[in-house]
Design a protein around this nucleic acid. Structure first.
Length: 890
DNA sequence: TGTGGCGGCGCG
DNA sequence: AAAGCGCGCCGCCACA
């Protein structure tokens, strides 16, 4: 390669040790182009030789590709400082070198590793959409250039008498370095390398899947729609679009034939009624993409489908597909979709500007000064008046083309935006209603078309992967999950408000107490860094581990709890943290989340976790405090409605029961069939003591902790930390290791089962739980031991966590017709939230005697295991004070 | 001024 | 050498 001796085309060279030129076989048909050198590359002068280089090697080897027979280069040849992304001007300046390499090597296939390289070759495409898809470049994408004193000059190739650069195939991929951070991405990269091998063998169509219906027909539904009958296929894909402040439905769209879709406007009552009748039919399956969003909207339109499937859930079950409709349908059907934001953007912009003009033209109250912290000292800051902020945004829109919507929402609610929105209402985005109807109809219809087209493909993939039952179970829980979100949980707003005040007072007192212990210096107890400098710097206390970043010593609870006796400042710091957490995460936000009826509505995500669990967000109702007295005061503010009680149904020891079932360990199974307390029985056995000699702290708690640890493959040092934390005395690493060994000696098949799961993971790169739910563990095929071990632990935990989820999901499906029937009969029986092994309900007092035994029996018989399944039922007026249900209560 | 990573911590 | 699974959210702080 005729590289220049050095290069100063951009400022990056000044901070780099050397220019890292492309390297390798210059007559290779395959070339890799990554982003920029990192630390290792900068030292060694070769591209992709650090950790991500090793990762690249491994993926290549596993796919049968010889990386060392290839040419490897970067889009940018000098290491950016601090490993930041290279800037556009740096990339542009460095292009001359990449073009030279491409012309010299003239590869047939170029792998673009990462977003920067992909953008260089293909422009602004989404990697989520196009990764692994071979795309042909233009005939001669690379101009001849000349580097002169004025910079880079592009010359006309033909005029220079040069041959045009030969066309080649670009395969965009995620960068291995990204996979090292987000190890789940390894699955996608590994798949793409397998795909690359096929591309090299000429087995893959260039450009990906072709859109089979490039000229679709989308339209407002004709008047004859009122006579619509069930489609011959029994399949109808449906989507909804909302507009207006309260998310009022604007239309729904449907498709029963690929490439054809219709839109029914929300005001077309007759057509909606006809459609509602059509889908309320056992012969018709309604296909939705993200049913949890659409079902409540459809309900508002009077449409309650008889049978629903969800393509987003299908994509989730398959694990290696994008969940967004746009990327999904591009990859599966080659169909291109405009984004909603793009479609409504012009309207959003117009409305935002008008809003900001109004804000700017009013005088607003001067904001109160805010107390902040600056280098450990309190500091009073005078926030900018909100009308000034609005003016600033308008100016930036004019001068820099800023996005007015984004900028306004970048202002914190407590920075004036909340006040303004309280008075003139929030800024309203553009809706489909605000753009020309033809465009709106096209956009809305296309989603239904896309959903219909992906369904048969997903359906076949689910079948091929043995995931039909898993999918069916997930889909069967949709109605209950949807109801939970719509119903919400009742909170006592005044109680939360006064609690917050008390917490604030408490925090002030603690902050004073903390500062009284140090030499006139203030610290912000909310700052881990300042706390660390105080404890381990000024006070010279004995530090534990460093933080992950390594810049200072960790101050987490586990570490500094043990320092309470070493210095009196430690205790108030920990207490302050507890108060701060409760106030900032629960007491304050929950008030704000509550609707006018004092109910908080969470968003439950069915497609988020690796193990099949649900997650809850905005607000998260799955992590309301329970373990400390103070935290329970938050829980106490969750109330039952008048005439109702809260009911909690909790699977007892469900993960261990699942483990007993899947491992078939005789001892573990006996514990449960004989109805014993697992951890007590374990402690008696391990310590060789009769029950009356078992001490909780000395025996049962260690056995319990070790037991839970085995499900995660805990290490002896980690177990030691746990035990010491709980106040168990006399443990060391050796004894902890012994305890773990003893646990497994007592339940030997559990260990064998875990090891067989590791083998399964290493062999297939994925593991299945007892319901055949699949979890990918691409980590086991990493080049790095630490990551492989983490992958194995994740794999080992999947059968228990996934299995437990499978059981409660089946129970939820079984309970759905029961509670729906009660509701139809006029009773109050509402599911509120699922917390992994627990369901919380709001139940009319009068029907408790019916509901408790019926629901308990339903949950306990949802699946048949080799051991009994037990449920604990508790009721009460608030969520903190539940008691075992005895029956016969009022 | 706005953003994202990190430390820390709430739950199962 | 590091050595615990699964989540979401808060405040701080470095950085652009």
């Amino acid at each position: 390669m005729n590289n220049p001796p050095d290069c100063h085309l951009c400022p990056l060279r000044d901070g780099a040790k050397q220019v890292v030129w492309g390297y390798g076989n210059e007559s290779s048909e395959l070339m890799f182009v990554a982003e920029a050198p990192g630390k290792n590359e900068d030292i060694k002068g070769r591209p992709m030789v650090g950790q991500s280089g090793e990762e690249l090697d491994k993926y290549c080897r596993d796919a049968g590709i010889d990386r060392y027979a290839c040419f490897v280069d970067n889009a940018v040849k000098c290491k950016p400082p601090g490993d930041r992304d290279p800037k556009p001007n740096e990339i542009a300046a460095c292009s001359v070198h990449l073009i030279r390499a491409l012309r010299q090597v003239h590869p047939k296939v170029v792998v673009a590793l990462g977003a920067v390289a992909t953008k260089w070759f293909l422009g602004g495409v989404s990697l989520e959409q196009v990764h692994g898809i071979p795309i042909e470049t233009d005939t001669d994408p690379f101009p001849i250039f000349e580097v002169g004193p004025d910079g880079v000059q592009v010359l006309d190739a033909a005029a220079q008498g040069e041959e045009p650069a030969p066309a080649f195939i670009v395969v965009p991929m995620y960068h291995p370095a990204y996979a090292l951070r987000e190890t789940k991405m390894m699955a996608i990269i590994q798949d793409d390398f397998k795909q690359l091998a096929k591309i090299l063998r000429g087995e893959v169509a260039i450009g990906g899947v072709k859109d089979a219906y490039p000229k679709p027909f989308y339209s407002l539904a004709p008047p004859t729609i009122v006579r619509i009958g069930p489609p011959p296929s029994g399949l109808v894909a449906v989507d909804t679009e909302s507009a207006g402040l309260n998310g009022e439905p604007w239309c729904m769209s449907f498709s029963t034939t690929p490439g054809v879709a219709y839109v029914i406007r929300a005001n077309n009552k007759k057509a909606l009624a006809a459609f509602a009748h059509m889908v309320d039919d056992p012969r018709v399956t309604t296909i939705l993409h993200n049913a949890l969003y659409d079902l409540p909207v459809l309900a508002k339109l009077g449409i309650i489908p008889f049978k629903v499937v969800d393509t987003m859930v299908g994509a989730y079950n398959l694990q290696r597909l994008p969940q967004g409709l746009k990327a999904l349908v591009y990859r599966l059907c080659g169909m291109e979709m405009g984004s909603y934001e793009e479609v409504v953007e012009p309207a959003t912009r117009i409305k935002a500007l008008a809003y900001l003009e109004e804000v700017q033209s009013h005088p607003w109250p001067v904001p109160e000064p805010v107390l902040t912290w600056d280098k450990g000292r309190p500091h009073v800051k005078q926030p900018q008046p909100i009308e000034k902020k609005a003016a600033r945004i308008l100016k930036d829109v004019d001068e820099k083309g800023a996005d007015p919507w984004e900028r306004w929402h970048g202002i914190g609610l407590d920075e004036g935006r909340g006040m303004v929105e309280g008075i003139i209402g929030p800024m309203v985005p553009g809706y489909l209603a605000d753009i020309p109807e033809e465009q709106a109809v096209h956009y809305a219809a296309r989603d239904a078309d896309a959903t219909l087209r992906i369904w048969p493909i997903l359906s076949a993939m689910l079948k091929a992967e043995g995931l039909v039952d898993v999918f069916a179970t997930d889909v069967a829980t949709i109605p209950m999950i949807s109801d939970m979100m719509v119903k919400g949980m009742r909170v006592d707003k005044p109680q939360l408000a006064s609690f917050s005040k008390e917490l604030e007072k408490g925090m002030e007192g603690l902050a004073r107490e903390i500062s009284s212990h140090i030499r006139g210096e203030y610290i912000n107890p909310d700052s881990p860094k300042q706390v660390s400098e105080l404890l381990f710097g000024e006070l010279k206390l004995k530090p534990g581990k460093k933080t992950k970043g390594g810049s200072y010593y960790s101050t987490d609870d586990d570490i500094i709890k043990g320092l309470k006796d070493a210095h009196p400042v430690v205790a108030p710091i920990l207490k302050y943290r507890e108060l701060s957490k409760v106030k900032g995460t629960y007491a304050d936000p929950l008030q704000a989340w509550a609707d006018t009826g004092s109910r908080v509505h969470t968003t439950i995500k069915m497609t988020r976790t690796e193990t099949g669990r649900y997650s809850s967000a905005d607000p998260n109702l799955q992590n309301i405090p329970i373990r400390t007295e103070l935290g329970r005061l938050v829980r106490k503010a969750f109330l039952a409605s008048p005439g109702c009680v809260l009911m909690s149904m909790d699977y007892s020891q469900i993960e261990f029961r699942v483990e007993a079932h899947v491992s078939q360990d005789a001892n573990l199974m006996r514990v449960f069939t004989e109805g014993k307390d697992l951890h007590l029985a374990t402690a008696m056995d391990i310590f060789g003591l009769p029950e009356h000699k078992i001490d909780d702290m000395q025996h049962r708690r260690p056995a319990k902790t070790a037991g839970f640890g085995t499900l995660f493959d805990i290490s002896a040092p980690a177990l030691l930390v746990q035990l010491e934390n709980m106040g168990c005395i006399g443990w060391d690493e050796v004894r902890c290791q012994q305890l773990i060994d003893d646990w497994f000696r007592l339940y030997p098949r559990v260990k064998e089962h875990m090891q067989s799961v590791y083998r399964e993971a290493r062999r297939y790169g994925n593991v299945r739980d007892m319901f055949n739910r699949m979890r990918l563990v691409p980590e086991v095929k990493s080049a790095h031991n630490r990551i492989i071990r983490a992958g194995e632990r994740q794999a080992g935990n999947m059968p228990a966590q996934g299995g437990a989820q499978g059981i409660i999901k089946k129970a939820m499906a079984d309970l759905t017709p029961l509670y729906k029937t009660l509701q139809e009969e006029g009773d109050v029986c509402d599911p509120l939230i699922q917390i992994h092994d627990e369901l919380v309900w709001e139940i009319g007092e009068g029907i408790l005697d019916t509901v408790v035994p019926l629901f308990a029996a339903t949950m306990e018989s949802a699946v048949r295991l080799s051991v009994p399944v037990k449920v604990e039922m508790k009721v009460g007026g608030n969520w903190a004070e539940l008691h075992k249900y005895q029956g016969g209560e009022k």
